[in-house]
Design a protein around this nucleic acid. Structure first.
Length: 625
RNA sequence: GCAUGCGUAGCUCAGCUGGAUAGAGCAUCGGUCUUCGAAACCGAGGGUCGUUGGUUCGAAUCCAACCGCGUGCGCCA
């Protein structure tokens, strides 16, 4: 993922101030040189590679020296000599190091001032983006199918990206692209009706079984039949395959009939179909709630929602001469690519690509999204590449205000078992999401109860039900953090033992730091201690402060790159620097009044930022655990 | 076969879009609890960044080729 999808700027940000200052200095230093392009004046301000080099570094000198034909260290000195007062007053004297790096160390007062500025509800994250609109395709469950681990990813990655943009003030449309229409549903429905199942009291497990049976019945083993004839196997086997063949044909015919009746709006069939959706979604909403994911009926924009837009979609491509007949089907072809996009089958019905085209148009032209994010399995890379290209060809990326929208697939990898194969149960079935979450919650609870059993534990006084609630939060945090903390595009090995060890770079580690902070703040309130002006005195305070100041840009980067792991990385760094601070800097004890007030203020701000960052991933931040 | 993604420490992964001595977590080893929560902190060992070329003042990062693994490839979604 290397593209930038959304960019916001914050002129009040410290790094931006440094950048502006150096930009001015570079322009002044180059006043007599006319041969330098405007692009060359980017000061290239970065966080310092190592704290021993300071807080920030400017890397402009090396490349600039190249075009000027001068020594990089000389160029750096020239620029420093032209630094405006507004820049100089922020920093200690600059150092030129190595080949020409400019090391920047902020004055403690600069840090304190910047912290005071971010200590408001925004916490340094710009949220003035109300004119921007994004649509996020997430979850994407199939009706009559149990949710499995793949849906975990589509759901929580999508929710996190949605929350990220909400945090930045964007208008966000969550789009749950349900598989709730078409032949697969009709097959399940037909199978249930054939079996005379009472659809009024059916459970999701029943539906799941019916779905799988229907799929199995419909599987036409023509190839196997041909092979049996060719290789001369026993008549019994051939008869078996022929029966299967006929059974499949009958089941498919029944499904087609059911689909036709559903499409024509036959009352009983539609009611049964609606019931299947209700049963499925009931559990989806329940799971979403367990995960803290904001997913409700109003977010449903499934295949059935687009059913009346399919024919117009196909027509539009035909009229635009973008779709051609090929072996009876309609396909869209692309330059420089062999693979076409199929938008209509030879029997005249449409398929999933058709729905995706209609949905893309809806999101851009009806919802007005300038960015449409698809949180879908990486195996659908080619599919979305084709769909997006088709949408561009026909011009449906043009928004109501005539600007161009961009469509982006955020492909996520598979969840693997210890054997590096897609995660399965011992009996070889897909892990249901529910089973996974139940296990994580059980482990979280066990751990929280075990620690509360110690009489001097801060949680010792809590009731079993309170501990249960915390244990649940811890277990869910472990799963979500593990999923969201590495590059979502990669496969990862699901190892509950590792995630729920609660040590190191985990969700519970962040929660623990938060609980420690909450503990200090509660104790301070009880003691009547108040927070006051921040004074940066120790290396640990400086490190913590600098991390807090990076919050805004961390969140904006995460959004620009559509990379939830950037949020997790920020959270881990913050928790980490806080724990080091906690170890080295007594807050309530052994410090004078002013130091205590300053450190309390630092703790308060850290707790707020940590809780805010966790809330973007919808991970709970308990005050005790 | 074509396309596409990925190869970084024993294991699991970062690496902020080309910058200084490649960083974490787990595991291993050694230190920290009569003082704010030890789910923590401090320290040590551990790497030809798949291989070979190329571009560049400078490459894990960009380009090419090769090796290995994964995934996808017209009437399923």
């Amino acid at each position: 993922m290397s593209q930038t999808h959304a960019r916001t700027s914050r002129p009040d940000d410290l790094a931006s101030q440094l950048e502006a200052g150096f930009r001015t200095a570079i322009i002044a230093a180059l006043a007599e040189c006319t041969s330098v392009a405007a692009a060359q004046i980017d000061p290239l301000i970065k966080a310092a590679a190592n704290p021993i080099f300071g807080d920030f570094q400017a890397n402009f000198a090396m490349s600039l020296a190249k075009t000027l034909g001068k020594n990089p260290r000389e160029v750096a000195q020239m620029v420093i000599d032209c630094a405006p007062a507004s820049l100089l007053e922020l920093c200690d004297p600059f150092e030129i190091a190595g080949p020409g790096f400019v090391n920047i160390r902020l004055r403690p007062e600069t840090i304190a001032t910047a912290l005071a500025q971010m200590d408001n509800p925004s916490l340094g994250v710009s949220n003035a983006n109300h004119t921007h609109t994004v649509a996020v395709d997430l979850c994407g469950v199939n009706v009559a199918k149990q949710m499995h681990v793949g849906h975990l990813r589509a759901t929580i990655i999508g929710d996190t990206i949605a929350r990220l943009f909400e945090r930045l003030g964007w208008r966000v449309h969550r789009q749950n692209h349900l598989g709730d229409w078409g032949l697969p549903i009709a097959m399940t429905l037909a199978a249930l009706r054939r079996a005379k199942v009472d659809i009024a009291r059916v459970t999701l497990d029943d539906l799941n079984a019916a779905y799988r049976n229907a799929q199995a019945q419909g599987r036409d083993d023509e190839a196997g039949l041909a092979a049996a004839h060719a290789t001369g196997v026993g008549a019994h086997r051939i008869a078996e395959l022929e029966a299967q063949h006929e059974g499949a044909a009958a089941a498919i015919a029944d499904a087609h009939d059911t689909l036709r009746r559903l499409q024509s709006g036959e009352r009983g069939v539609v009611a049964d179909w609606q019931k299947l959706i209700d049963v499925t979604m009931h559990e989806v909403y329940e799971t979403a709630q367990v995960l803290g994911v904001d997913l409700k009926p109003e977010h449903n924009r499934g295949e059935s929602f687009f059913r009346d837009r399919l024919a117009p979609t196909v027509d539009a491509f035909v009229k635009a001469n973008l779709a051609v007949r090929d072996a009876g089907a309609l396909v869209v072809r692309f330059d420089g690519r062999e693979r076409p996009l199929l938008i209509q089958k030879s029997d005249g019905t449409s398929l999933y690509a058709t729905t995706d085209l209609a949905a893309a148009r809806y999101r851009v032209q009806d919802l007005g999204a300038e960015l449409v994010v698809y949180c879908v399995d990486a195996r659908q890379r080619d599919h979305f590449k084709d769909v997006f290209d088709a949408v561009k060809l026909i011009g449906w990326t043009v928004r109501p205000d005539h600007s161009q929208a961009s469509l982006v697939h955020v492909p996520f990898g598979a969840v693997l078992g210890a054997d590096k194969r897609p995660l399965k149960t011992r009996s070889g079935e897909n892990f249901t999401l529910k089973a996974l979450l139940d296990e994580a919650i059980a482990r979280g609870r066990r751990e929280v109860h075990a620690r509360a059993a110690s009489p001097d534990a801060p949680t010792a006084s809590l009731s079993p039900s309170e501990l249960d609630a915390i244990g649940r939060a811890v277990g869910i945090a472990a799963i979500k953090y593990a999923d969201l903390s590495s590059d979502v595009g990669r496969d990862y090995v699901f190892d509950l033992d590792r995630m729920v060890s609660f040590e190191g770079d985990t969700g519970p580690y962040a929660q623990y730091a938060h609980a420690r902070l909450a503990g200090i703040l509660a104790k301070a309130t009880a003691l009547g201690a108040t927070s006051g002006a921040i004074v940066i005195a120790t290396p640990q305070e400086r490190a913590l402060a600098l991390n807090l100041l990076r919050y805004g840009s961390a969140i904006e980067d995460a959004a620009a790159q559509l990379a939830p792991n950037r949020i997790a990385a920020f959270i881990f760094e913050l928790a980490n620097t806080f724990n080091a601070f906690y170890q080295a800097c007594p807050v309530l004890r052994g410090s004078d009044e002013a130091t205590r007030a300053s450190r309390l203020h630092l703790c308060d701000l850290t707790r707020k930022v940590l809780a805010d960052a966790l809330s973007i991933m919808a991970i709970e931040a308990p005050s005790r655990m």
